[in-house]
């Protein structure tokens, strides 16, 4: 083992746990840092982010931290009094209160609703919701007001790393091949043929799938999985880029070979640019 000693990082961009950030007094330690004997140290891997006297570390990879307004897909874990416990993959549990669910008619929630909570969402149901608020102890309140949100079924769920997902204007997306996609900020992607963005209908009902739709959904799913394996960012543009490439080449060959060709071409392009 060769060890190069006394290597100095003059332009240190990445900080690792235990790296000294500042030994002067008067600085405030922000998120992902800790203070010991007046000195501030980093506690995760990431890049430094300093505003005036506040020092923070922006992590490269961490567990999902929800923010207000983000769209998440989760699974119902438990039913408690007047609320559901939802697993959205964050560091602490998320709750969905009965009052923040959707009713087709305008009225207050009654005791009857409380008794029939399981009819709205039962255990192991998948739901799509928006983050309503984040408490001080990092637990999350969700809401499903609006037709867009609520129970999702009859589709394909894909789990990817949440840091690969690009924040976009819209997260209910209709792709080129007429597949409807919900891009959850927490790294869960749901593909189906139900269009959730139209406001005309009052209740979203499931249509029967045609064979072509099934093929399209499966292909989109494969494309996303390959994007994840190669650690590419996932967005509407990147998914459509892969799908276009496949449709141009006429998928008579094996799908997997075509996708691998695509990524090889991308990599060589990158190397040429460098």
């Amino acid at each position: 083992m060769q060890i190069e000693e006394n290597l100095h990082h003059d332009k240190k961009e990445v900080f690792l746990p235990g790296d000294l950030l500042s030994d002067e007094t008067g600085f405030i330690s922000g998120t992902n840092t800790y203070e010991e004997q007046g000195k501030i140290f980093s506690s995760t891997t990431g890049t430094i982010n300093q505003t005036n006297k506040l020092i923070m570390i922006k992590p490269i990879k961490c567990s999902y931290q929800p923010q207000i307004g983000e769209i998440v897909i989760g699974q119902i874990v438990q039913i408690r009094d007047k609320k559901w416990i939802v697993n959205i993959g964050s560091s602490s549990e998320a709750t969905l209160h009965l009052n923040s669910t959707y009713l087709p008619e305008q009225r207050q929630k009654t005791e009857d609703d409380e008794m029939n909570m399981r009819q709205i969402f039962a255990e192991n149901d998948l739901i799509c919701a928006e983050v309503h608020s984040v408490n001080n102890d990092k637990s999350v309140n969700l809401h499903t007001r609006g037709l867009k949100y609520g129970k999702i079924e009859d589709g394909l769920l894909i789990k990817v790393n949440h840091y690969l997902i690009v924040k976009q204007k819209r997260h209910f997306i209709k792709l080129n091949n007429n597949v409807n996609m919900i891009l959850g900020h927490n790294g869960q992607i749901f593909l189906s043929n139900q269009d959730r963005t139209t406001n005309n209908q009052k209740v979203i009902y499931c249509q029967n799938y045609t064979v072509q739709q099934r093929v399209d959904i499966a292909n989109t799913g494969k494309a996303i999985k390959f994007l994840q394996q190669n650690q590419y960012k996932i967005s509407q543009i990147s998914i459509e880029k892969v799908l276009n490439y496949i449709s141009e080449k006429k998928p008579q060959n094996d799908w997997i070979i075509l996708i691998e060709q695509f990524f090889l071409e991308q990599k060589t392009k990158q190397q040429q640019d460098q």
């Binding site: 746990p17 235990g18 506690s43 891997t45 961490c62």
Partner: peptide
Amino acid sequence: LLDAGVSMKDF
């Protein structure tokens, strides 16, 4: 732990 991005004090 480092790969997971868990916050810790040192190596």
